[in-house]
Design a protein around this nucleic acid. Structure first.
Lengths: 117, 117
DNA sequence: TCGGGTACTCACAAAGATGTAAGTATGGGT
DNA sequence: ACCCATACTTACATCTTTGTGAGTACCCGA
């Protein structure tokens, strides 16, 4: 998602996309819906994401208030990520989108993606 | 959105994001929900989009089956874009996301976007 | 002293998305 | 002959996102 300075949204959908935008945030939200996860657990839960990108996404989502980061001062270190109320509410709002995707997953997989774009 | 070759989705949300991904498709879907629009009308309806990007998005959405393109052989030319059933169903699924955005738009606008990322 | 586990951080690179400005084709009206 | 409107198309530049691989800090136990 673009990071312009003027964040004047044209509608609610625009605003929502700004917050959950990109390829990964929805999946991270999804992975955290059943409770907090540690960094390593998240990495395994979100298949295919690199450590670097995961951290970047987590930082953004912390800044936007979607999730909470809890550090346990132990050795080895332990950090738990969990959804805030805000994050939970977004997750709820995205549930129907996820259902739509599951209902249509065969059709979506059949799309000739190499011709798109 | 990334265009990898292996389109194996991890869940429905992943698939849905692949289809409506990016900054603009949601808004285009939204603009078309009340009926077909011509190219120029769409450009005005989706504030801030450039002609080039609008066309790219429309082409993608045509390929993914979200919308239909009807050409009227006139001079000056007339082209109408409308949602397919598939597009309508996605729009319906995104309604709750749009509502969430509207309910939280003040909070979202208050996010320090220049510190995100 | 050395390796192990965790959660990062850094430098670098590539891929993808978006933007700008100009040009094309058409035929009707003036 | 010239301009208009519409819907693109093209070339180019830039910005954002994603990826790769290595390295860091910490303390503990062997």
């Amino acid at each position: 998602m673009k990071k312009t300075k003027e964040r004047a949204f044209t509608c609610g959908l625009d605003a929502a996309i700004a917050v959950m935008g990109g390829k990964w945030k929805g999946l991270i939200l999804f992975a955290l819906q059943d409770g907090p996860l540690r960094f390593g657990e998240l990495r395994r839960a979100v298949a295919g994401i690199s450590e670097r990108v995961l951290i970047l996404q987590l930082r953004e989502m912390e800044t936007t208030g979607l999730l909470h980061r809890e550090v346990y001062h132990q050795v080895p270190p332990k950090v738990e990520y969990s959804l805030t109320e805000f994050g939970h509410s977004l997750n709820t709002a995205m549930a129907s989108l996820g259902e739509w995707g599951e209902e249509n997953i065969e059709r979506i997989e059949a799309i000739p993606w190499d011709q798109v774009g």
